[in-house]
Amino acid sequence: MAKLFAVTIIVIAILSAIPIVRHTWWTSQDISTHGAPIDEQMSETMAESGILFLASQILLAVFIWKFSRPRPGEKIKSFPGGAMGLVIAAFLLVGTEVLALGAFGAKAWASIYFTPPGANAMPLQVQAGQFAFYFRYPGPDGKFGPLHPDLISEANQNIFGLDTEHDPDSKDDIVTAEMAIPVNREIHLLMHSKDVGHAFFVPELRVHQDFVPGLDLSMHFTATKVGRYEIVCTQLCGLGHYNMRAYLSVFSQEDFDSWLKKQATFQ
């Protein structure tokens, strides 16, 4: 029984590691300028915790195998180094590992969150609501008109609550249900929620941020690869949570300009 158990643990540990090593399922391709340190951190952590995982499972299995059938009269042996040795080993090995991970991770995090958006970043607003994302481009005047939550009407497709009659800045604002951005151009994404908590997650873009009702948050990023991606909501927001998504198109500058021009005619 014990030997079978030991073998089972080892088999499970190895089988578990195979899809990871073979990248059968893996994080999506990175299309952001800031994603490299995140991916590096991910592989680093995967390697270190993978080794820890395999080593401790195998150790567990070996000890079960070895010490479950003691010969009669065999005395209890003590682990070389004793408890203090293990404590020191834990502090040295795991301690240095986690401090290193923490330090490099903090650096990766800081490079994303502690840098202001560039002066040329393209402003773009996203509003989350049950259960769809909507986007707003400031239009030719470069200014977003003010929001009037009391004017919001989904039936009229006045998603943001704009008063185009009275607010001159709102007149040329372009509201869309799909997000499109030009490639290799920094985007300054201004986020707010209309109702409850939501989240903005584009795996490829390495961008993930909750919408907090009552707070205006912002993110900035640059996409490096033309293509069509998906934005999903990762914060439980109600019955339609599973269907809260939008497409993100990364266009060349020319394609983006013509897309935006076309969207302007729909307003």
């Binding site: 609501g129 049950q130 769809a132 989904e154 019955l239």
Partner: peptide
């Protein structure tokens, strides 16, 4: 009575 679909907020 106004009828909505929350999953498809444009539905009215």
């Amino acid at each position: 009575i106004h009828v909505k679909c929350n999953i498809h907020p444009w539905m009215s």
